[in-house]
Computed example of a mutant assay.
Amino acid sequence: MKIEKIERSKHKQERVLVYLEGGDLLRITESELLRFGLCIGLDIDDRTVVELQQSGARSETRVRAANMISSRPLSRKELSKKLKEKGAAEADAESACDWLEEIGALNDAEYAAMLVRHYGGMGYGEAKIRDELYRRGVPRELWEDALSKSPDAQEAIARVIAQKTKGRVLDEKGRKRLSDMLLRRGFAWRDVRAAIAQISENATEFDYEE
């Protein structure tokens, strides 16, 4: 069947529309346009049509993946899931992830390290950070190396305490509330207990903001 018209999509910048005689429409990218040497009047067979459809879907998935990863960091698992939610076939989604890993745009180890720095800097403990690594689909084999670079737990707890108490002394009730808050933030009980023990018992009543 012959190509009757070729034009760029008005809705998707990366998409090229190829109109075939009989009313069929191919949605491809400029990559297929050049690689297959497509032009108006060219006669293509059914096999080539299928190849163009498959190649166009792969190329569009790559473009979408690149756009997603450029707007915000993602793990490979997160990116693949988002691509499939947008309608990409599993093979195309995985192929796009492979490509991004090859060019260094997708790196789970770097992503894991970024998450550790981010949540550690926000005053969260290891348990909370592990929850985030799991939730975001970071492979478990990357966790320990990333966590080894997290802030020292006692130093992190001390910063949180300083922020919450603003240097004022807590009574027993205040220390209990502070301890519970630190545990919710993912710090280990042994570290919380050691930090709370350093707080003076010569207390005045004080309610800090959580």
Rank of each mutant, 00 (worst) to 15 (best):
N107W: 07
G104W: 06
I103E: 08
M114D: 11
L106E: 00
D92K: 03
A91D: 14
E90H: 11
A96L: 07
L115H: 01
D92Q: 06
Y119E: 02
D108R: 06
Y119C: 05
K84Y: 11
L106T: 03
Y119L: 07
M114I: 04
E110D: 14
R117I: 00
A89V: 10
K86H: 13
L83E: 03
D98S: 11
R117H: 09
G120M: 00
A109F: 12
A109L: 14
K86S: 15
A112K: 04
A91P: 02
W99N: 07
C97G: 06
E94M: 09
E102I: 08
A109K: 15
D92T: 05
I103K: 08
S95E: 09
E110W: 12
E90F: 09
G104F: 03
M114L: 15
L83M: 10
H118V: 11
W99K: 10
E94A: 08
R117A: 11
L100Y: 11
A105M: 14
A113C: 08
D98L: 06
L83A: 08
K86E: 15
Y111L: 06
E102D: 13
A112G: 07
A96I: 07
A105I: 06
L106M: 06
I103S: 08
G104H: 04
A93F: 01
A96N: 01
E102N: 13
E101L: 03
K84N: 11
L100K: 06
L83K: 04
W99F: 14
L83N: 01
A109C: 05
A105H: 08
I103R: 09
E85N: 12
E90W: 10
G104D: 02
E110I: 11
E94I: 05
Y111P: 02
L83W: 07
E102Q: 14
A89S: 13
G120I: 01
E102V: 12
S95K: 08
Y111D: 03
A88M: 04
Y111M: 06
A112F: 09
E101P: 04
Y111Q: 04
R117P: 01
L83R: 04
Y119G: 02
D108M: 08
A109Q: 13
A96G: 05
H118C: 09
M114E: 12
V116H: 00
A96W: 06
E90M: 07
A112W: 03
S95Q: 07
H118A: 11
D98N: 12
V116S: 03
C97T: 07
G120S: 01
A88L: 05
K86Q: 15
A93V: 02
L83G: 03
L100T: 02
E102F: 10
E110S: 12
D108W: 11
L106Y: 03
L106F: 05
L83Y: 09
L83C: 07
G87I: 12
G87K: 10
V116W: 04
Y119P: 01
D92C: 04
E94T: 08
D108N: 12
